[in-house]
Nucleic acid binder design. Structure first.
Length: 402
DNA sequence: CGAGATTCATGTGAAGTATACCTTTAGGCTTAA
DNA sequence: AAGCCTAAAGGTATACTTCACATGAATCTCGTA
């Protein structure tokens, strides 16, 4: 009986007409042929980096703009082209791309440099070595021949927020130590104000050239979506109205094209699953919830256990009544929870830091306030909205074993 | 009544500790001449 | 004697703890109008 059912599902799936031609083109990893409305930025980046084709070190470049304004995409695009040209002209050029936000990959000085070393083919242990040693490993392996290295540090603001700007200082100085190779650094930041509280030496050196990516407006996002959907969907699967809606939603908060693409992709997946031949407006609404949920799930799932418990404690408090709550309240609940599942209780000092981290991830919204006579504390609210809370709670319960 | 002192709960920085892992080194064992 | 293996010694990064001091506005205190 069940077997037959399964078979039925598969059969149906195969017979069903899919809305997709090439679903990949909606994914964030996809690099499209041309990037609409970013000509200025593309040529800006290209002009700066082009000098490496003459074996001259390009100026360091610092790029900032909000999420989903195409920073990463543009840089990657230019880099690909550059690599291709360099290959043709036999210019020794290497481009290293590192995303600093990756947990446990590049979020400390040591780990970043270790990652760089790995990118040039030197396995480096996760701990144990002096940081200088790792620097040396990296330098030596790039300095063995004349070449230009372009290091792209994406989400560089994270790295600095977590472990200070010393890394950047060291990296911007590397050229003095290298005999053959030359290094150019491209920093990409979502935080527009990030440069303000950075060592002025780093600032002047990293910001030799600066480029701002303004947010897209609704019309531009529409263009982008239209372009991609030509590749992604079969004829007539997606309606003008749907695209407008996605664009409008995304433009509503700071012109985030990535969000628009996500909306369209998820909406179309939902439509596909429903087995209807085209995407309807309500699919977009459903998609909006789902994306928010999925993003949060992804973050929560990979949180260290202790942070998960702190988050769960927040959810418990959120459930009762108080919304904002304070560090002390949270710590009490946290204690009970740890007791319940027999986990080691960390100090309040540490929890305070963990709350800070959850705040950075957007799961909490925490603000240090003074309650006058009644002390100073963090005022914490949940950064997760209504419908998702329950699901996150379920997820945590199953992961933590409540 | 208002200026200044007090107070509370916790933020925050610095230094210390435990753990896991790394390299170096010295000693011991094996092996081959 | 040379080569190889092993275990101890000495070192590091990271996550966490301990200690001590900093914060900042509501509240208290006390001098003054």
């Amino acid at each position: 009986m069940q077997q037959a059912n399964l078979e039925g599902i598969f059969e149906e799936f195969l017979n069903k007409e899919s809305v997709f031609l090439n679903k990949d083109s909606l994914s964030i990893r996809y690099t499209p042929e041309n990037i609409p409305h970013r000509d200025v930025q593309i040529s800006g980046v290209a002009k700066v980096l082009a000098s490496c084709l003459r074996l001259e070190r390009p100026s360091n470049l610092f790029i900032y703009g909000k999420t989903g304004t195409g920073k990463t995409l543009v840089v990657q695009k230019v880099c690909h082209q550059l690599e291709a040209t360099a290959l043709k002209k036999e210019v020794p050029l290497k481009i290293i791309y590192v995303n600093c936000k990756m947990r446990r990959v590049a979020d400390t000085e040591y780990r970043l440099v270790a990652q760089l070393a790995r990118e040039v083919g030197h396995e480096v242990p996760a701990t144990g070595l002096p940081t200088d040693e790792v620097y040396k490993t990296f330098f030596n392996s790039i300095d063995d021949k004349k070449q230009i290295i372009i290091i792209v540090l994406d989400e560089i603001d994270w790295l600095v927020k977590k472990s200070g700007d010393e890394v950047l200082y060291n990296l911007t100085r590397v050229n003095q130590e290298l005999k053959n190779a030359q290094v150019c650094i491209v920093g990409i930041s979502n935080d527009v104000t990030f440069m303000e509280d950075v060592d002025p030496r780093v600032k002047s050196s990293l910001g030799e050239e600066e480029l701002v990516f303004p947010p897209y407006d609704a019309l531009q996002i529409k263009d982008i979506l239209a372009e991609r959907s030509k590749i992604a969907f079969v004829e007539g699967a997606v309606d003008e109205v749907v695209i407008s809606k996605c664009a409008a939603y995304a433009a509503r908060d700071h012109g985030d094209a990535r969000r628009a693409l996500d909306l369209l992709r998820v909406a179309s997946e939902l439509a596909d699953r429903d087995g209807v031949g085209n995407i309807a407006e309500e699919h977009v609404d459903l998609a909006e919830d789902k994306i928010e949920r999925d993003n949060i799930f992804e973050i929560v799932k990979h949180l260290p256990t202790q942070s998960q418990i702190v988050l769960y404690a927040g959810l418990v408090l959120d459930d009762t009544d108080k919304q904002p709550f304070f560090t002390g309240d949270l710590f009490n609940i946290y204690n009970e929870l740890c007791d319940r599942i027999g986990l080691k209780i960390l100090t309040q000092r540490r929890i305070s830091d963990l709350i800070g981290e959850l705040d950075m991830l957007g799961l909490f919204t925490a603000k240090v306030i003074s309650k006058g006579r009644y002390g100073r504390t963090r005022e914490v609210r949940m950064g997760i909205n209504g419908g998702t809370v329950g699901k996150v709670k379920e997820l945590l319960e199953s992961q933590l074993g409540f």
